[in-house]
Write a protein that binds this DNA or RNA. Structure first.
Lengths: 344, 344
DNA sequence: CTGAAAGCGCTAACAT
DNA sequence: ATGTTAGCGCTTTCAG
């Protein structure tokens, strides 16, 4: 015995399916109030719930979207996800979470299953997303919004949300320099990732702006996770003139550095200053509270989903003023206690 | 111009839709190899992709499942999610993530949209899930698996994964007692949650087993997040004879306690021992590395999804040996550096 | 204001 | 070995 269907309701109410359909989809304006009431009652009695699948087959809309992230375990993404979810839920959308684990193969599999399942749109929040695949999606004319990079060839079907790392990172560099640090180092994310490059470049450029030769500031490749930070610090300390301050590509890396420093009996910030990037919730809660370049993570999530919804609007139902589909969000430095005057 | 449909392929290949359907769904055993090849070629040429929606309408299966969690931001859930996702992906399933934010209203909204969208099953990993709603789901005959509690009335359509907190928590208490602590305190999760009660009770019972009167050990209600831990510590310290060791309901709470202790100039573990529960990834990376009761989080996720898949199997395709639909997983104590001898 | 009929893209008997 | 015929549950003209 399957669920009760629209035909059941129609029969029980002594009307046609069309009529039921009308009241269900709210187009019951021109309808005798009495008829509507009757149908409504039957719906109630029979506990009728319209089949979304059947509706999708006709309407070509599933009210679902895919969200690709590199690592659910990264608190950074958690916030983004929350943002996406909140606005999705408010608009009747459901989100397929796709955890790519920084693995291009997973990306591909997910893209396939998402397009197969007919998602209305896709959110690329995954930094490990090969351009090839987002193009693939654009080719399918599936609306999408991409976080953190520019894209050509997806006008109309795609939007982007860029993050301006420069502002925040420059502030971080200024801060470190003011504290007297001269030997800095950077622990980047995997340099194959666009966002890793952006952060590194912003850092090096800020240094250059102060007349510090980027050549002399080591960049060690991490993995955006704590263990990467730990290993990177070992490398930093092995150098002839170890840096006195290190800028990490993200907070998790910074945490790893702090933890490794402790193991080396180096005190943060007395002996070593470290600044992170993200401002994950925990950043302010650990010891020492982390100085970090803050990203508007929740906002990014909300904005991304809102942009997608906007992209999904059919022309006729478009809002008065369409939103900008290429936006840029700012970063800012949050100074806490993992940075201090350079040791003499 | 919509996507190419099965009819298009049929026409182009000069065969009937059924034939195309057969090769697509792999039932092309009894088919002339030549025909299959031809169809396959056309499918390739036209870049045909079957509509999963249409297929679902007929098959009554969407190959999707819903996953309700209380808080994506909690690293504990991140691991569970990863486990679920990994096995889901491997089986062609996609997961609707539902972040309930510990909010029963969200639960309700999510349950509705999930059932409407015809998910094949639901995973309740959310501790803030009112029994009422999981019953509702069972009533709809939607297979589901519930984490962390027992349920009656869902035989056949539901499974459970319980976590045996006793073992790990008893070990934690033994550990603390051996270190000479006599005044302990507990910072629980919201006591409206079943899992919060389970943990508290396990703690109190372990104490009682050692002849320590539960009446004398304060239980302060937190919120499973860091800020709750911070506030709770303030309360603990305000007592006439403050505890020298506190057991937190989860690692986030423990982190909050550690951080607050620092603010009070109390050193952990020298002046205060704290033990958490979860063993989130960060637990070992912060300072001091956290002693904690470890939960097999990733495993829980994997197991949950596998159990759901098992529940979803139609009798005929059931595996040789059906799996146990009511399992219990163990916890164990991980001793790190947030616990030490009680101060004299 | 309401009903009849066609069709969304696919599967599954039932023919042949 | 392949084609024909009905639907799956809903929306949507087009009539009435």
């Amino acid at each position: 015995m399957s669920r009760t269907t629209m035909a059941d309701v129609a029969q029980a109410a002594g009307v046609s399916k069309s009529t039921v359909s009308r009241v269900v989809s709210g187009q019951s304006i021109h309808m005798r109030a009495e008829t509507r009431q009757r149908v409504l009652r039957v719906i109630e009695d029979l506990d009728y719930r319209p089949s979304h699948v059947a509706r999708s087959l006709v309407s070509k809309r599933t009210l679902t979207a895919g969200l690709l992230v590199s690592d659910v375990g990264n608190p950074y993404y958690a916030e983004v996800i929350r943002g996406v979810e909140d606005v999705a839920l408010a608009h009747g959308y459901n989100i397929f979470l796709c955890n790519t684990s920084y693995n291009p193969n997973y990306c591909q599999k997910y893209i396939h299953s998402l397009t197969d399942k007919g998602v209305d749109g896709i959110l690329f929040m995954s930094s490990s997303m090969p351009d090839e695949w987002v193009r693939e999606v654009a080719r399918h004319a599936i609306p999408s919004v991409v976080l953190g990079r520019e894209f050509q060839g997806m006008e109309g079907v795609g939007g982007t949300i860029a993050v301006n790392f420069e502002t925040g990172i420059r502030a971080a560099v200024d801060h470190l320099l003011e504290l007297g640090h001269r030997r800095l180092a950077h622990v980047s994310g995997p340099l194959g990732l666009r966002t890793s490059q952006l952060r590194r470049d912003a850092f090096l450029q800020a240094l250059a702006a102060h007349g510090i030769d980027p050549q002399h500031t080591p960049v060690i490749e991490g993995n955006l996770r704590t263990d990467g930070g730990r290993q990177a610090l070992a490398q930093v300390l092995a150098m002839p003139q170890p840096a006195t301050a290190v800028f990490a590509a993200n907070d998790l890396t910074a945490l790893g550095i702090v933890s490794a420093a402790h193991a080396y009996n180096l005190r943060v910030p007395e002996n070593l200053s470290v600044v992170g990037l993200d401002d994950i919730e925990l950043a302010g809660q650990i010891i020492p509270p982390l100085t970090t370049v803050a990203l508007p993570r929740y906002q990014i999530g909300c904005l991304a989903m809102r942009m997608l919804l906007d992209l999904l609007q059919t022309p006729q139902e478009a809002e008065v003023q369409a939103m900008d589909h290429n936006q840029e969000l700012e970063t800012r430095l949050v100074i806490r206690q993992s940075t201090a005057r350079a040791p003499a």
